[in-house]
Design a protein around this nucleic acid. Sequence first.
RNA 1: UCCCCAGUAGCUCAAUCGGCAGAGCGUCCGGCUGUUAACCGGCAGGUUGUAGGUUCAAGUCCUACCUGGGGAGCCA
Length: 434
Amino acid sequence: MTYLDDRIWISELPDHVGETVRLAGWVYNRRSSGKIQFILLRDGSSRVQCVVSPDDVGDEKFAELDRVTMESSVWVRGTVREDKRAPSGVEVTIHDFGIIALAAEYPIQKKDHGVDFLLDHRHLWLRSARQETVMRVRSTAEEAVHDFFRERGYLRVDAPIFTPAACEGTTTLFETDYFGDSAYLSQSGQLYNEAAAAALGRVYCFGPTFRAEKSKTRRHANEFWQVEPEAAFMDLDGCIELAEGLICRMVTDVLEKRRPELDSLERDVSKLENVEPPFPRITYAEALELLSEKGITVDDKEGFGAEDETVLGESFDKPVVVHRYPHWCKAFYMKRDPDDDELTLSMDIIAPEGYGEIVGGSQREDDYETLLKRIDEHNLPPESLEWYLDLRRYGAAPSSGFGMGLDRTVAWITGVKHIRETLPFPRLLNRIYP
RNA sequence: UCCCCAGUAGCUCAAUCGGCAGAGCGUCCGGCUGUUAACCGGCAGGUUGUAGGUUCAAGUCCUACCUGGGGAGCCA
């Protein structure tokens, strides 16, 4: 029997108090007081302090410990003990241990580092407690997305990454060579979702999307993850309700399953606990009024800026739904408001605390002639959208959906300031390594 | 693309008015039987982002470029 066969996870230690167990993991710190040493071990599930004394392991073994460098991989065998001095409540007294692989001098130290250095070492930075914690929350948020849609009868239908042309003409795309032809990395699965919704009723895709914008802010990454549901026979109100439900589900699941993680990130959970339906709903026009009351004038041709969004978001204690944006600032496929042709049946959801827009969605234009006109108005090539127009030729139906930025949402839920910490390997302007 | 800021030891930073290149952490060596980013003593560690310029003298001032950070626009 080797350490691969009988080791248990550090997270399981509280159930094994008094027993002798085996652990395997990495040494993230070691402290020595001459005749007693403390090995801080992590194995991905949790962290624990192991105590080593020559009385337990013998002088020779004890001296061998001096070779163990930071981040070396080891197995240990020892007795689990309750100890009030330990942050997790348990410690392990080591009887035996083995070095699996000694680590070279580890670049990331216990002192502060600069962002540049950390991002260059992202593959190692992920091992630090804070980054590990954010990844746990992200994973739980993703699970909540899948659970939510499955319970509502939505099918996951994966959209392609390679696309022949822009889904939304305006945004810059990453171009690739596709056997001699140009292809582009998807900036949204939305158009494909509409086709899938006409086949399967209620669908969602969940994957990476790519924007070649040279954005340099804490809210932008050039590769980011989007959840995009689309449902046939759903109107804008249904769409808003769906988005509201999704956000609430993600927040409540994280609060329930990742409370210790949020605490260790020093997230003020009181700001998450009141995130429940209904969210405030205001029209674009009402949002302008609200800003105006606060002495902010928004340029008619510009729309909201980031600062305006922050002010809007901070005006409410939960995410706010802004709907019916003017058509000039929205995509060609959004249906116009039957009550006002200047407006679209669109909505954005703005997160509190300055995290900005986390959801953008709309009811889709389902009339063939109108859609054709919009494609023309936006100077898009109709031939590349023939298949999309087919969806209106063959049994057009009201259809709505939205895109939710996972990374931004996780940034908001965890309270981390920059989206780069919510992505395991963020792709940012001028940064694609590692 | 635009605006602002910063590049000095492996890392984080200091260096007064332009006047000898410094500290902490880490590494290495030594000490310590309850440490919590342990602590104490010691050694080693430098083409000050790059290229020019001003000056008796440049880490410091000037010009250009490179790299990164913060923000804007755009969006999730």
